[in-house]
């Protein structure tokens, strides 16, 4: 079993962006933690606040973002939100690094990949490019790039999509960080390549014991990779649990909706593919009470009066719902 040492702890994270039509609350009271060596998936639709949450951890949100006073992100005991730029610089790319959705646009088209991978090593370990070259070749080998010596001088446009994402991973792991944030790392790739990239990430995770915060809307990726799952909706975490209980026994109607909108091979004939009706609520006009009420088939009056809090359940997980679903039998039971 893993040693349950907390690496990252996010508490009451709350942030908004000023816009022309007033402040938009992007994330509302988000709390979660990541243990050492754990892979945590952050799941939700676009606009759910998952990317803003992840970017908050590495401090890469647009500078106009405003964090609420009691927001706290502590990483190895250091508060990242109140940290000065100069200190944050030492953490970024060194202890926390990130890979992005589109590897082509995320790599600088004018620099050879060898130099781009070496850049964090040069920056954080003060090595020259020549001296970091061995490390770069080693990294390229680790992410499964054949003949790495010959690839050093290649430019991003000369590589395939899968190769580029491997380059991004190599770059992110260059300084042996303890946390990797992967923002939709496979979304822009072909299906066959997706599996390869996930494999690379899993292998590297086993080797290095790095923790991964995986942001995705793809539940297939979650099932493949994650130890624990956080489900976000409307800027809040609505359910949290280990990957087995989330998939076998979702408590939140939204999670259930997400799961049933995934096509399955078996049982396709009995269960038609379901979609969640409606769209993500406009963050400027969030409803009173539960954010999900307008799309929820179990919603009652109570849901439109009060927002449910995230409370622990018997499955060692948490759920924010007035009417959490029962095991197997998904009948509504009002226990309040």
């Amino acid at each position: 079993m893993k040693n349950r040492e907390k690496l990252l702890e996010v508490k009451h994270l709350q942030a908004c962006f000023p816009t022309q039509r007033g402040e938009v609350k992007a994330i509302n009271d988000v709390s979660f933690s990541i243990d050492k060596g754990e892979i945590v998936a952050l799941v939700g639709e676009s606009g759910s606040g998952k990317s803003v949450t992840a970017l908050s951890v590495i401090g890469l949100n647009t500078p106009s973002i405003k964090y609420e006073k009691n927001s706290d992100i502590s990483f190895k005991g250091k508060n990242l939100i109140s940290m000065k730029k100069k200190q944050m610089k030492k953490i970024r790319g060194n202890e926390i690094s990130m890979i992005f959705q589109d590897p082509l646009s995320s790599l600088n088209p004018l620099h050879p990949i060898g130099r781009q991978i070496a850049e964090p090593i040069q920056l954080h370990q003060g090595l020259s490019y020549i001296k970091s070259r061995e490390k770069v070749i080693d990294l390229l080998k680790k992410v499964g790039i054949p003949e790495p010596e010959k690839r050093l001088k290649d430019y991003p446009h000369q590589l395939s999509g899968g190769m580029r994402q491997r380059i991004m991973i190599a770059m992110a792991l260059a300084c042996n960080p303890s946390l990797l944030i992967a923002d939709e790392p496979t979304t822009a790739l072909d299906v066959t390549i997706q599996a390869q990239i996930l494999n690379v990430m899993r292998e590297l995770q086993k080797d290095t014991g790095i923790s991964i915060l995986l942001i995705t809307h793809d539940l297939g990726v979650v099932a493949e990779m994650a130890d624990r799952v956080l489900v976000m909706y409307g800027g809040e975490i609505v359910e949290e649990g280990d990957v087995f209980s989330i998939f076998q026994n979702p408590k939140h109607p939204y999670t259930e909706g997400l799961l049933s909108s995934v096509p399955k091979l078996r049982g396709a004939s009995e269960n038609r593919l379901r979609t969640i009706p409606g769209t993500v609520p406009n963050p400027l006009e969030l409803p009173k009470g539960c954010n999900f009420q307008t799309r929820c088939s179990y919603a009652t009056e109570q849901c439109s009066d009060l927002s449910p809090q995230l409370v622990s359940n018997e499955m060692n997980g948490k759920v924010a719902c007035w009417h959490p679903l029962e095991k197997v039998n998904k009948k509504v039971t009002n226990f309040v």
Binding site: I58, I91, G93, F100, L107, M168
Partner: peptide, 14 residues
């Protein structure tokens, strides 16, 4: 505004 600038920041560059 481009993605590779975000990548550069994520490496720790100022």
């Amino acid at each position: 505004e481009s993605d590779y600038i975000r990548t550069a920041y994520s490496k720790g560059l100022l």
